[in-house]
Design a protein around this nucleic acid. Sequence first.
DNA 1: TGAACGAGCCC
DNA 2: GTACGCGCTCGTTCA
Length: 494
Amino acid sequence: MKHVTTPAAMKFWMEGALALADVEHQGVRIDKTYLEGAITSTTKEINDAEAALRSDKDFKLWRRRFGEKTKPGSYDQLAAVVFRDLGVPSKKRTASGDRESAAAAAFEGLDIPLVKHFLTAAKLKKARDAYLVGIQREMVQHDDGLWYVHCSYNLNSVITFRSSCSNTNYQNNPKRNPKMMETVRKCYISRPGYRQGELDYGQIEVRIPCPYTFDPVLMAYVCDPTKDMHRDMAVQIFKLKPNQVSKALRNLVKADYVFATFYGSYYGLTAPALWEGVDNGNLTLEGSEKTVRQHLTDIGFTELGTIDDEKPEAGTWAAHVRGIDEDFWGKRFKVYAQWKRDWYEAYCRDGGFTMLTGFAVHAPLDKKQVCNSPVQGVAFHCLLWSLTKLVNRLRKYKMQSKVIGEVHDSINLDIHPAELDDVFDMATSIMTEEIKVWAPWLNVPLVCECESSPTDGSWFDVMGMAKRDGGYVPADPAKWQKRFGAWDGQLVTA
DNA sequence: TGAACGAGCCC
DNA sequence: GTACGCGCTCGTTCA
C-alpha cells in the first residue's frame, strides 16, 4: 500500500481527542435569563410574521389549495402556491427534481409579500428552534449555580479529517445576519469576571494550498500584506480602479467568486451569483453614489446571458465571467491549476493520497474532493495542533483561562483578564512560530488574529485586538470606546 | 416511529 | 471534460 497513515498522525489525532475532551469538559457558560427572554420575544415575532402571512391577499389561494391541511411553515405548500397558483416561473428545481425549489435564492428579485412574510417567519424559526431552543435543551447547571452547555467535538465523522460538533453545534452559530447573530451569540457569555476570547488563523484556507502547490502568485498574495487578492479580483471582474472597490463589493467577490472558484465552481454558477449579488446589497462604488448595477450598465453589461451547454453569447455577463475563469486558472493561478491536474492523476494512479500531516485517504472521491480535502483537512490539523498545545500549556502553568470551543480555524476561550496578554502571546507563539517545528513543510507564514470581549462580555461582544507597546489593546479604539466605553485592559474586576 | 427530503446556518 | 467542498439540526411528508 503506497498511502498509509503515519504513526505520528495517529498519535496526533489521539492527543487532539484528549484536548477536545478537556474543551468539552469546560463547557460554555449560557445566560439563562437572556436566553429565556430571547425565546419569548422571538416567538412573538414569529407570531406576528405568521399573522401577516395569514392575512396576505394571496393566502386565500393557499387555503383553497390545502384547506384543513394548510401549514404556514411548509416549503412544499409555498412552492405550490407561488409557482402553480400565482403562476410565477421557477428558476430551478430541488436536487431530486420533484418540485420547484423554494429556497430563498429562488425568490430573489421577486417582490411577493406572501413570500416575504413566509421567509421572515422561517428565519426567525431557524433562530429560535435550531439555536435558542437547542441551547436551552442542552444546558446544565454546574455546582457554581450557573448554566453551561457541553457540546460534543467529533473527530470521526468528517471525510476530510476535519472535526464536527453536535449537541449543540457550536460551529454554525449565526454570524452573517446581524440580527440573528446578535440574538444567538448573546446567549454565550463569559464565566464571571472573564472575557470571551477568540484566536483565528487568518486566511488559512488560502495559505495551506501553498505547501501543496508552490503557486508563486498565491504565495506572493499571502506573504505580502500590501497585496489583496479579493480586491484585485474585484478590479478585474468589475473593471474598476482599486480605490473604487468597497468593502461590501470585495466581500461579494471573495465569497461568491474567489472561494467558490478555488473550491471548484465555475462561471455557470458564479456569474449569476455576482449578477444578483450586486443588487441584493444595493452595492455602490466606493466613495460614490453610483450603484454597481449602473456601472455595469454603463460599461455595456445589460444581460446575464444563458447558462446551458452552449458557450454564453458574447457581450453577456456570463461570457465575461467565463473569460475571468480562463484567466484565473490559465494565467493567474496556473501553477495551482497544474497541481490540481497532477494531484488528481496521482490519486487515480495510486488509489489514494497522503495529506501533508500524514493522514492517508483511500476513499472513492471525485476530483473536487480529491483536491479540496487535503487542504481543508490540513488547515484544521494546524488548528488542532495549536489547540492541543494551548490546552496543555494552560494546564501546565495552572492558568485560569480555559479553551471552551473550536470552529475549524479558530479557538474560543474564557480568558481571565489578568492573563489576557499572556494568553494572546502564548497563542501567537504556538500558532505562528512553534507550529513550524511540527509542520516543517509550511512555505508561507501563518498568522493569528486575536479578539476579546470586555470583562463579563458575550460572544457577540468580541472585537479585534492588536499588540501595541508590549500589550494588547483594541485594534479600533474608537469603535471599542463607542460600544463599551473605556478600554479596561487587564483590570481584574471580579 | 423513522427515513427521506429540503432548507438554512457555519467554515 | 467539468460544473462549490465539508458538516448539524430542524420541520414536513410519507410509509
